[in-house]
């Protein structure tokens, strides 16, 4: 039985619920989870209920890494920390944007904790506003496509690189669509001493506008088109990548999502898709995916 109980209020087909379940599958009972404000936090803990079968704390949106540092320090000070893993499970907004400073501090201090970013590429809990993780040309409620806009004008922030630059001994990307790989990486991260990081790609049916049954399929397409490369970094060096046997063109990933619909309907969309294809091409080259 999962340590994340059913009865939670995640949307049918929710990516965050899957990510939470996989993380707990990987870590087991002996852990403490810290969650910043966001979908996963809200839908799992409507007082007096909680879906969590492990000790869990939510404080604020931007301070999860600091709270987790404090938990770790307390466990050390109280002589309790031997095997108990300290885990943060936070959204992309909490991680790449508002909580970045606290994360930087925690990684610099070198606490023994694992930070999992569940990246659904926008602020879902507040209604799909853009975040620093929203990819180029995705339409969100604050970067909508319109008569003179193709949606989000910025590129996705490279968070794993930022963490690696802090000297983290283990940084990995994962996807909810590759569960065994994700679980293996989370295990490795928690078993590595020091502050470690796993960035989990998590397609959100509600925010990305596809049917809930396709959550896993869309995540797989992100990997197969090289829009989401799966790799591991140890002490700043890329030490493992998931190679692609037959890479698919990015259109296959984009066309199944409502947030990219304008690229296929508006004039000039084809040109913009080429820019997205260029991102995938860069990933292939940079990480040696082929």
């Amino acid at each position: 039985m999962s340590l994340l109980a059913p009865g939670h209020r995640g949307c049918a087909g929710c990516c965050d619920a899957l990510a939470g379940k996989f993380v707990l599958d990987a870590v087991g009972k002996d852990c403490i989870v810290v969650s910043p404000t966001g979908c996963l936090e809200v839908f799992t803990t409507p007082y007096p209920e909680s879906a969590w079968g492990v000790p869990w704390i939510h404080s604020l949106f931007e301070n999860a890494a600091a709270v987790a540092s404090g938990v770790e320090a307390a466990y050390k000070a109280l002589g309790k920390k031997n095997k108990t893993k300290i885990i943060v499970i936070g959204g992309d907004g909490a991680t790449l944007d508002i909580g970045l400073q606290a994360i930087s501090g925690a990684f610099e201090r070198g606490h023994d904790l694992t930070y999992i970013c569940v990246d659904n590429e926008a602020y879902m809990n507040t209604g799909v506003q853009r975040s620093g993780a929203t990819p180029l040309f995705a339409s969100t409620t604050t970067s909508p496509a319109g008569k003179v806009s193709f949606g989000n004008p910025q590129h996705k922030k490279n968070m794993p690189a930022i963490i690696a630059a802090h000297g983290s001994p283990y940084v990995a990307t994962a996807s909810i669509s590759y569960a065994p790989d994700l679980i293996k990486k989370v295990k490795k991260a928690t078993e590595t001493k020091g502050p470690t990081y796993v960035h989990v790609h998590a397609p959100c049916c509600t925010g990305w506008k596809f049917e809930g049954s396709k959550t896993i399929e869309v995540g797989r397409l992100a990997v197969e088109t090289a829009m989401w490369p799966l790799y591991e970094m140890e002490n700043g060096e890329v030490t493992g990548v998931r190679k692609l046997k037959k890479r698919k063109p990015v259109e296959e990933y984009l066309k199944v999502q409502g947030r990219y619909k304008h690229l296929f309907t508006a004039e000039g969309g084809t040109e913009e898709i080429k820019k997205i294809q260029a991102i995938a091409d860069w990933n292939v080259k940079h990480f040696g995916l082929e």
Partner: peptide, 23 residues
């Protein structure tokens, strides 16, 4: 049901919420 201070909630308490009705 009396309030537990500290906003503490019981583990796995969401099982009380039968989401099968959403289907």
């Amino acid at each position: 049901m009396k309030l537990v201070i500290k906003t503490t909630a019981k583990p796995k308490g969401t099982r009380a919420n039968k989401t099968g009705t959403w289907r």
